[in-house]
Nucleic acid binder design. Structure first.
Length: 157
DNA sequence: GCCAACGTTGGC
DNA sequence: GCCAACGTTGGC
């Protein structure tokens, strides 16, 4: 299976790319996804070695902050089993988990953060899921889009 | 803070 | 199974 590309959204106040860089082994589990389409990607399609764009949503200038890779493929999101947890879901149980997560490891910051407003100006990205007003927190990215984003980040502005 | 987009819930 | 109401996301 060829390596695939994904975009993961996080609110930087919640868990930023810097937080990930400073985490033990620069790795965290990506918990809390409670959307079925995103769950399906996490459970079925995201594999070890896949590449990840780390996107900061919210704030005055939402942007892609850095690059990460998948270091563990989909497994049950245990935070759904904990009544006191933010994303507790009584429908999900260890015997029949509803929600899944993956582990990601930070690789590097982009040479500069790429704001959403700039991504909208790149012709190669016009069909990117992120730019279609998508609320999905886990989105597929094509190889062409990945290349265009890295190229854009290397270009000074 | 507003509001559009969109997913989920629940009555019928 | 339809669809209105409601809640959430997230850009602006």
């Amino acid at each position: 299976m060829a390596k695939k590309y994904w975009l993961l959204k996080s609110e930087p106040d919640c868990f930023s790319f810097t937080d990930l860089m400073q985490a033990p082994d620069r790795t965290t589990y990506w918990d809390g996804v409670r959307n079925y389409q995103a769950r399906n990607f996490l459970r079925d399609e995201i594999k070890v070695g896949d590449q990840v764009l780390y996107y900061h949503s919210g704030g005055p200038s939402p942007h892609i902050a850095g690059l990460a890779q998948v270091v563990r493929a989909g497994y049950p999101d245990h935070t759904a089993f904990v009544p006191a947890a933010d994303h507790f879901d009584p429908k999900s149980s260890p015997d029949d988990p509803t929600w899944y997560m993956v582990d990601i490891q930070a690789q590097e910051e982009l040479p500069r953060p790429l704001p959403l407003s700039e991504l909208r100006e790149v012709p190669a990205l016009q069909d990117m899921v992120l730019l279609q007003r998508s609320r999905l927190s886990v989105q597929p990215v094509t190889a062409d889009e990945w290349r265009a984003i890295l190229a854009q980040a290397k270009r000074p502005r």
